[in-house]
Amino acid sequence: MPAFTTTEWAILFLVLLLGWLLGLISRSGKKWRRLYESERDARAEEQREHEVALSAANARIAELERGRVAPAAAGAPLAGTATSTPDTLDLTHDDLTRIRGIGRSGERRLNAEGIYRYSDLVALTPAQEASLEHKLGADDGYIEQEQWREQAALLDAGRQDEHRARFG
C-alpha cells in the first residue's frame, strides 16, 4: 500500500466529498423537486376541498337562519306549551348550565326532553316537574329544592346580577 502525505490525504478527501455532493445533486434534485411539487399540489387540493365544504356549510346555515327568521317575522305566535317542539323550536337555546344544579350532561338530557330555554323551565307545572325529575333520575322535589324555576325566571328576565347574587 502506497504511503500518502497529509496533503494527498486532504486532496483525496476533498475529491471524494465533491464526488459525493455532485452525485447527490445530479441524481436526487429532480426527485425531491417532484415530491415537493406533488405535496404542494395535494395541500392546495385539500385546501380547496375544505373551502368548498365550508362554503356549503355556511350556505346551509344561512338557509336555516332564513327559515328560522321567516315565521318570527310573519308574526306567527309560538305554541304556549311548557316544552319546545320541533315546530316551535327556533334553533337557539339558552345556556341551561347557568342554573345551579344543571351541568352539561343535565342540559343535554333536558334538551332531549324538549327543554331548551329558560321559559320552558318557568312554564313547568308541578306534574310536569315531577315527571321530568323521574325522567332525569333525580330525587323527588329536586327541581323545587334547587329552585330551577326561580333561577330560570331571573335569567329569562335578563337579571343575571341578581341571579349571581342569590344563587352564586
Rank of each mutant, 00 (worst) to 15 (best):
150 E>I: 04
76 A>Q: 14
167 F>C: 03
4 F>V: 03
122 V>M: 04
60 R>N: 09
160 Q>R: 14
108 R>Y: 05
92 T>R: 12
112 A>W: 06
165 A>V: 10
111 N>A: 09
42 A>G: 10
159 R>A: 15
129 E>H: 04
64 L>C: 05
37 E>T: 09
144 E>R: 13
162 E>Q: 11
22 L>H: 07
68 R>E: 11
141 G>C: 10
11 I>C: 06
129 E>N: 06
38 S>A: 15
70 A>E: 14
15 V>T: 05
94 D>I: 02
51 E>R: 06
143 I>D: 00
95 D>N: 15
67 G>Q: 09
16 L>M: 08
146 E>S: 08
78 L>K: 07
90 D>L: 03
99 I>M: 00
27 R>Q: 10
127 A>N: 08
43 R>L: 11
59 A>G: 03
80 G>P: 02
57 A>N: 04
94 D>P: 02
25 I>E: 11
144 E>C: 03
38 S>Q: 15
111 N>Y: 06
125 T>Q: 09
56 A>D: 09
72 A>T: 08
130 A>N: 02
149 R>W: 06
103 G>N: 05
25 I>T: 12
92 T>P: 02
45 E>M: 12
9 W>G: 10
22 L>N: 10
27 R>N: 09
30 K>W: 12
144 E>M: 06
141 G>K: 04
43 R>V: 07
132 L>D: 00
45 E>D: 14
77 P>Y: 00
15 V>H: 03
10 A>S: 10
81 T>K: 11
31 K>L: 13
72 A>D: 10
102 I>L: 04
142 Y>D: 09
77 P>D: 00
102 I>E: 00
105 S>C: 05
168 G>A: 04
100 R>Q: 13
34 R>N: 12
75 G>D: 07
79 A>P: 05
138 A>I: 02
72 A>V: 14
133 E>I: 07
41 D>L: 04
79 A>C: 09
107 E>P: 00
151 Q>D: 04
25 I>W: 13
45 E>F: 07
79 A>K: 14
50 H>V: 11
36 Y>E: 12
87 D>T: 09
87 D>F: 10
71 P>Y: 04
45 E>Q: 15
140 D>W: 04
26 S>I: 13
104 R>A: 15
56 A>W: 03
48 R>V: 12
23 G>R: 07
97 T>P: 02
1 M>Y: 12
77 P>G: 01
58 N>I: 12
63 E>P: 02
80 G>L: 05
33 R>M: 05
107 E>G: 00
31 K>R: 14
109 R>H: 07
137 G>R: 04
57 A>D: 12
45 E>S: 13
45 E>R: 13
17 L>M: 10
35 L>D: 11
108 R>V: 05
112 A>E: 15
18 L>P: 01
116 Y>W: 15
39 E>H: 13
127 A>H: 11
94 D>H: 13
4 F>Y: 07
157 A>D: 13
10 A>K: 14
109 R>S: 05
151 Q>C: 03
84 S>M: 04
35 L>P: 01
12 L>I: 12
74 A>S: 08
156 D>Y: 03
142 Y>G: 03
158 G>A: 11
55 S>R: 15
111 N>K: 12
102 I>S: 00
87 D>R: 13
52 V>L: 13
147 Q>E: 14
73 A>D: 10
32 W>F: 12
144 E>I: 02
23 G>Y: 14
101 G>N: 04
146 E>Y: 14
163 H>L: 00
81 T>P: 02
118 Y>E: 01
11 I>M: 06
152 A>S: 01
54 L>Q: 11
166 R>Y: 06
100 R>M: 11
2 P>Q: 06
